[in-house]
Design a protein around this nucleic acid. Structure first.
Length: 101
DNA sequence: ACGGTGACGCTCA
DNA sequence: TTGAGCGCCACCG
């Protein structure tokens, strides 16, 4: 059975539109845990219905891709398929496509 | 209770 | 700019 924290994270993930992304840090802050970015990553990793629940739209605060249960490469293809610009291990124009809760 | 781990973040050399 | 170091939270044995 999932923990309450995990559910809370997944609930926020569902609000991120296609073609936009957010960061682990922002999700943590939105949940009232400003220093809990790492814990958010853990919760994303346990997400049982990806990519229905778009955990692939969560990147690091500096714009680098971050991890993914099925491999970072998979995460990148998913983002590209939503027209998110990526170069190397970085999303382009993060400030312009980031989703603010 | 205790210590280790991890899809992170910030600072500083 | 890039990497090492250290701190953070939630979770697990």
């Amino acid at each position: 059975m999932p923990k309450a924290f995990d559910e809370a994270v997944w609930r926020l993930l569902r609000k991120i539109p296609r073609g936009r992304v957010t960061t682990y840090k922002r999700i943590a802050a939105a949940l009232g845990k400003p220093g809990g970015a790492r814990a958010v990553g853990n919760a994303c990793g346990k997400n049982p219905r990806a990519p229905q629940v778009p955990c692939h739209r969560v990147v690091k605060s500096d714009g680098s891709i971050g991890g993914y249960a099925k491999g970072a490469g998979k995460k990148i293809s998913l983002l590209r398929s939503e027209r998110v610009g990526i170069r190397g291990n970085r999303v382009l124009e993060l400030k312009k496509i980031i989703f603010r809760f």
